[in-house]
């Protein structure tokens, strides 16, 4: 077996894990499986791409490549703006659609259905604006450097893996050690009671979207940087995202990340045996196994 699968798996797993964080948070705090989450990844990538073009056009001096990486300073700047816009998109969707349904006391499954409809609309809108042709953050070619043990990776790939770990660690510390994080846990345990204890539930809902959409945007940019940007990229990631969130245990940030890495690695190793055309089936098989053997996930509470 080719050891390079470890690197491939870690890279794919980083994207899946970061994306699954938002999914697991909306699931545990807003209590619905959000099918638009994949489209936040795609929108994040496209919004960042557009901003990068804008910044690059306005400030030509930023057009110097940030060696050893493949991109210029315009990309990190654009990502900051992209995160802001993706968060705005999520908040707007909550205000116009999900929030209204919640306020009406609609069944969780109606909200899931609305998210399914919104997901189709958002994805097709991307296809209309940007066409189905793939787009790229950079056309620069990078040479994969040997890391020893027969492993090779490009600087971009190492950056993505490193950044993912830093982001998840920081996020986990914030959520476990701050008043905000305690409030989030309280809302996910019992929203009615949390409100009684003076927790501003609306604030927590906003925070959930901010973290979720922010991470989704970063994950989308990472996938776009290492592979390509397509309107369907988020939709194609949706099943791995759900599988990672459920495997990790709904509500657990480290769980989502570890779930993502397991799925990324499983895909990378499995495609060597069954062929790349079956990649998308791997997360389905894992999902079914988790539902059969440990439906609460690795880090979830039983009976949840």
């Amino acid at each position: 077996m080719n050891p390079q699968a470890i690197i491939d798996g870690l890279i794919a797993g980083s994207t899946i894990g970061l994306g699954a964080i938002g999914l697991t948070l909306t699931y545990s705090i807003l209590r619905f499986a959000n099918f638009t989450h994949g489209d936040f990844l795609a929108w994040g990538a496209y919004l960042s791409l557009s901003l990068m073009g804008l910044i690059g056009g306005l400030l030509a001096e930023l057009g110097v490549r940030l060696a050893p990486f493949s991109f210029t300073l315009a990309l990190p700047l654009a990502v900051v703006g992209g995160i802001a816009l993706t968060v705005l998109l999520a908040l707007a969707l909550d205000k116009l659609l999900f929030g209204r349904l919640r306020a009406r006391g609609a069944d969780a499954i109606i909200i899931v259905m609305a998210s399914f409809g919104a997901s189709m609309a958002l994805r097709s809108l991307l296809e209309f604006i940007y066409t189905a042709q793939p787009a790229y953050f950079t056309t620069a070619l990078q040479i994969a450097k040997p890391l020893g043990l027969g492993l090779r990776a490009t600087p971009d790939q190492l950056l993505v893996i490193g950044m993912t770990f830093v982001l998840v660690a920081v996020l986990h510390l914030i959520v476990t050690h701050s008043a905000m994080g305690r409030a989030m846990r309280a809302v996910s345990e019992n929203p009615a009671l949390a409100g009684v204890y003076g927790i501003d539930v609306a604030q927590i809902v906003r925070l959930t979207w901010i973290i979720g959409a922010g991470m989704a945007c970063i994950a989308g940019v990472m996938a776009g940087l290492l592979v390509q940007i397509r309107p369907y990229m988020g939709f194609d990631l949706l099943l791995p995202l759900f599988a990672a969130a459920i495997l990790g245990g709904i509500g657990s940030i480290p769980g989502a990340m570890i779930g993502g890495l397991i799925i990324g690695l499983a895909e990378a190793f499995a495609v060597q045996i069954v062929g790349a055309e079956w990649r998308a089936a791997i997360s389905f098989v894992i999902l079914v196994l988790v539902l059969m053997l440990r439906p609460q996930g690795l880090f979830g509470k039983a009976g949840g």
Partner: peptide
Amino acid sequence: RSDYLAITTFGIAVALQL
């Protein structure tokens, strides 16, 4: 929970498409 059926059927469609 009802959402698990949604997620699993979604996965079934992806897997069958493959």
